[in-house]
Design a protein around this nucleic acid. Structure first.
Lengths: 154, 154
DNA sequence: TATTGTTATACTCTATAACTATA
DNA sequence: TATAGTTATAGAGTATAACAATA
């Protein structure tokens, strides 16, 4: 395989994809700019996860975000400081605590939803419904393929 | 509009997309983990841009990355320090300099390409060629729709 | 002894503002 | 005066390692 030129097409295909993925950084920065100053993206993601999946523990947050627990711990701490999330005792394991979205957290989430929706509606005005849905589906599948791709020192 | 329930579908559509976009952070972190320690993603993007678009000035880099010039300036400085990029005088404007990918930069780019390609080939093993291409196209279009979405204080 | 979670430290990415040099 | 670019500073995100409490 190494000496063949036949792999150029495949290599190019992934190269294009990698470049487009890097370019997505610009999209994420654009989304981040519409967030309220007191609710940066890390906090916003925590709220969205709790809203979508329901109450969960720290380990599950870090798993869903595919980040180290030290990272999710800080994000969650920020949301708790703002009163958007509360840590309830876990009857099954006293080391752990159950994270629960508060009413104030739901209110903040409503603000986030509105801002992001406005932003996307403006930016994707020329996209058809089918294309938006197709992109959403492919992104979900991409995230799924990557799975929990954290650095496992094993 | 506020009192109607009819907007639920559209709102939900964008909400899903926003959530998937956030999840893409996990994908980007996964890609970042395969990069060499001496070439973080900022540097890698600079090299890829110069390779793909050819020589350019700082302003064009910040435009393509959709970041402030102070940011791209630091990324470029890092690549120059490593000998991957050189700053050539711009005959048309002595304030500016032309950024040029060196041979060492091309070599580093080859390393990056190999690592990213391996990673994607492993991760997207079950994807069809058509789906990979479709995702690539949609990401490019998404980036295009966002355009130069930097904060313009005007 | 292993696991859940927190905290300290360090590094990358980013934006704002102040600055230099040139147009 | 305006523009191209650099640098200083500050803030967010992340990972590693050391630590606490509990299993």
């Amino acid at each position: 395989m190494d000496s063949m030129v036949g792999s150029v097409d495949r290599g190019n295909r992934y190269e294009n994809l990698a470049r487009q993925m890097s370019a997505i950084g610009a999209v994420k920065r654009g989304l981040g700019r519409v967030l309220p100053a007191e609710c940066p993206s890390g906090s916003a993601i925590v709220l969205a996860l709790l809203n979508h999946h329901g109450d969960m523990r720290m380990g599950r947050v870090s798993e869903l975000m595919a980040v180290d627990m030290s990272v999710s711990s800080r994000h969650v701490a920020h949301t708790v400081d703002r009163g958007w999330v509360e840590r309830l005792p876990d009857p099954a394991d006293r080391r752990s605590r159950i994270l629960h979205l508060t009413r104030a957290g739901e209110d903040m989430l409503a603000v986030l939803d509105r801002r992001l929706t406005d932003m996307l509606a403006r930016t994707l005005a020329e996209w058809s419904d089918d294309d938006v849905e197709l992109l959403t589906t492919l992104l979900a599948r991409l995230r799924d393929s990557f799975g929990d791709c954290r650095a496992h020192h094993a």
